Amino acid sequence: MQPETERRPLLAAAAGVALGGLGIVGASDRANAETSEDSFTILEGTEYETTGTVRTADADGPTVLVVGGLHGNEVAGYEAAASVSDMDIVRGRLVTVPRANVTAIESGSRIGDDGTDLNRQFPTGEEPTTELARAIWGVLERFEPDVVIDLHESRNLYDGDVEDGVGQAIFHSRDAEAEREAEEAADQLNENHVSDSAYDFTVAPFSLPPSETPNMLVHKAARDTDAVAFLAETVSSEPELSTRIRWHRRIVRSLLWEELLDESAIDDGDDEDGDEGEDGDDGDEEDGSDGEDDGADNEPPEAVIGTDPADAEDVDFSEGDTVVLDASASSDPDGEIVRYEWDVDGTDEFEEGGETVEASLSYCGELSMALRVTDDDGATATEEVVISTE
């Protein structure tokens, strides 16, 4: 993406920030030989110690940074950022810092142990004002991202006044391309994954001083570096946590597909998780088609999930329990099912498996588990169950 206006040289205003809090501590090759993964630690040995990941594809491309957990009471943001860290990329580099403010997350509060709001410690043109803020900014110094995405939540919906609430909005830096991509992400999400229009996502540019909320990470990233920046907000007051996490993932996926993903990874008809009452089978096709073989009269398969216990959707499980998911009742009216894929952790990432899988319930709250089946003509169908864990 090319910015509409010229930006200042990368990090020119904060060149003196130390990198001592950031170091690559380990690397391991992924099963996909075209992608490698590293990890790094921020402020190792302190109460603020947290871990980030770096996924690097063999093909050249831009660097994208995804941050969550600047505020510890905005759960969907940091849970989504953690799940994004495993997102498959085909080019470039994906850097994630899912739990930026661990002391705030541990206490479930907006403010960390240092008594400050972390997302108000990034003054434009100056050095960040706290040790943790400087360490977070050090990540931008180290990796020089082209795109920064910060994931948050709000108690109320955005109606044009940030003082009343900013939920269900994608805010963007003041660039023509950033605005276009934010609008495309919102349109795709609203059309395919938000069934209640009251929760439709809106789009707005970052405010300008003096009316803006001061010293936010994305503002500094947009103004002190070459990065294009986005701040995504879901509303935490009504939708289930698992739904809000998926909304965040969808926003990230949509914003990234031109940069890091294959085009088929974000298709307007792709509804593999069946969010918010959607039927989940109207275009879920790995090659971006409409779910049917080109020019053929193939009928799509039917995905059916059985559970053990049979009434699993009505049971309040305890953390650590297991549930068996069974796809054997799935069928194809004019052929056969050749592939079963499962998403048992609510991440929107399907992994190939057999007709049955055993899922361990390590997630508290409501969790959508999904099945995708593919027939011998390449058509797909999805189904999901929602499991509750106390």
Rank of each mutant, 00 (worst) to 15 (best):
T50K: 03
G269F: 05
T380G: 05
E49N: 06
Y363C: 00
E349P: 00
A76D: 02
G320F: 02
E390M: 06
A186K: 10
A296Y: 08
D187A: 15
P98V: 04
A18K: 01
V228Q: 15
G288P: 01
D86S: 14
T356D: 05
Y363V: 04
S28P: 00
A176F: 01
I89M: 09
E153L: 10
L361V: 07
A303Q: 07
E355K: 14
T41R: 15
S328C: 06
A381T: 00
A379C: 05
I305E: 07
P210A: 05
G138R: 00
L151C: 07
I170P: 05
D271W: 01
C364F: 13
G280H: 02
A104R: 04
A310N: 11
P300Q: 14
Y199A: 12
G21K: 05
R110K: 13
V203N: 02
T356R: 14
W257S: 14
D334F: 01
R249W: 10
W247Y: 15
G68Y: 05
I89N: 06
T213H: 06
A104M: 13
R155N: 09
R99I: 02
G68D: 07
L231Y: 08
A381E: 03
V218H: 05
G167F: 07
E302G: 06
T56C: 09
T35M: 14
A381L: 06
L151S: 04
D117S: 04
G138C: 08
L361S: 08
D117A: 00
Y199Q: 11
D196K: 07
A100H: 01
Y199L: 12
R91N: 08
A303W: 08
E184T: 11
G354W: 04
M216C: 06
A204P: 00
V357P: 12
V166Q: 08
T129V: 01
R7L: 15
Y363P: 00
E6R: 09
T225A: 11
V373K: 00
V90H: 08
D377W: 11
T130Q: 12
W247R: 11
V228H: 03
L70I: 12
R253I: 04
L140I: 14
I387M: 10
L132D: 03
T213M: 07
V373E: 01
V194D: 02
F206L: 12
L132Q: 09
E233T: 08
G23H: 13
V64H: 04
H71L: 12
V75F: 08
S264T: 15
A31Q: 09
R246H: 12
D164H: 08
A59Y: 01
T225M: 12
S388V: 10
Q168F: 15
K220A: 15
V90K: 08
P309E: 05
M1Y: 14
E384F: 13
R120F: 02
T322Y: 11
S360E: 15
E127R: 11
E272Q: 07
T103D: 06
V344R: 10
V67A: 03
A80I: 11
T53S: 14
T225F: 05
D377K: 14
A57F: 09
I24G: 13
N298Q: 10
E74L: 12
D146P: 10
E179N: 07
T243W: 02
E390W: 10
H248P: 10
A370F: 00
A59Q: 15
